[in-house]
């Protein structure tokens, strides 16, 4: 079990709700993953399509999961702050996955805008989950302004590349041992999620790898198992890698070796 503020959480997997082939597939994936937290978003709704949002909400609101609204698509501090307030009003939660995007091509977070928006939202009473890079100093600044959880990326959103810089993620874990850390974005395979958990991360947030699988509910189950086993391995204490061989079978008593002289008492 891990926690964010006063909230205790059992599952080490958070699931996004986008790009599924059908609402039923999304629902089944949430159930098979046994997640407690799903991410949702806010978008303009035209009069002609004004039931889309309601329909989506109807599909997820009774699944007994906590929603983590995001500010996806925001490119400025003001857009992100306003969207966060709208999400809080609509979803009745002070949790917000804060995204302030700085680059269209990579969807890389804008660290300067991110810290500024996080500072404002913490002052406004939000529990801010900042989607950030693996930069140590940005992480420190986010903590300085009151973030109690960090969500560094593994790789660009939707890329499926996995942990492109595991040493940076490991450094964040080492430097912030008490801060809940969630790898968010770039996870493509269950083994990627397991690797993140073996680093000591508290959770993994992913979407595309499940939603675009041939069988999303089955992939959701695979990811749930991967994060659970990764966490189990971390908690059990992983051995440190060595540069040279160390025999696992005892050398003492090895066959075909000279006898060891036994000293007799005089």
């Amino acid at each position: 079990m891990w926690s964010i503020g006063d909230t205790k959480i059992n599952s080490h997997l958070l699931l996004g709700t986008s790009r599924y082939p059908s609402p039923a597939s999304l629902q089944q994936s949430i159930l098979r993953a046994e997640v407690e937290i799903i991410t949702v978003s806010l978008r303009r709704e035209t009069a002609a399509k004004q039931q889309d949002g309601q329909r989506f909400w109807d599909h997820v609101k009774d699944l007994n999961v906590r929603v983590l609204p995001n500010t996806a698509g925001c490119y400025s501090v003001q857009e992100a702050v306003t969207t966060a307030h709208m999400a809080r009003d609509l979803f009745a939660t002070n949790w917000i996955k804060l995204e302030v995007i700085g680059d269209d091509y990579t969807l890389q977070p804008d660290p300067f805008g991110l810290v500024k928006a996080a500072q404002q939202l913490v002052l406004d009473g939000f529990e801010v989950f900042p989607y950030t890079t693996d930069d140590l100093i940005v992480a420190q600044r986010l903590i300085d302004v009151g973030c109690r959880v960090l969500m560094p990326w593994a790789a660009p959103i939707g890329s499926g590349l996995g942990l492109t810089n595991p040493r940076a993620l490991q450094l964040l874990r080492h430097r912030f041992p008490k801060v809940p850390l969630i790898v968010d974005a770039g996870i493509g395979r269950p083994s990627h999620a397991m690797a993140a958990m073996e680093l000591g991360y508290d959770a993994v947030l992913l979407n595309t790898a499940v939603a675009e699988a041939d069988d999303p509910p089955a992939m959701a189950a695979a990811f749930a198992a991967a994060v659970a086993f990764g966490r189990l391995g971390f908690e059990a204490g992983l051995m440190e890698p060595r540069s040279f061989a160390v025999a696992s079978t005892p050398l003492l008593g090895r066959a075909f070796t000279p006898a060891v002289a036994i000293e007799r008492p005089s």
Binding site: T17, S41, T82, D89
Partner: peptide, 30 residues
């Protein structure tokens, strides 16, 4: 005008000429 209006205040908030109104609904997101 880029300020959230609480749902509880919608009935008492008057619209002014030139206001920039955003109406957002829940949507799937990652």
């Amino acid at each position: 005008n880029k300020s959230c209006i609480k749902r509880s205040d919608l009935a008492v908030t008057q619209v002014k000429a030139g206001d920039d109104i955003e109406i957002l609904a829940p949507m799937a997101g990652g």
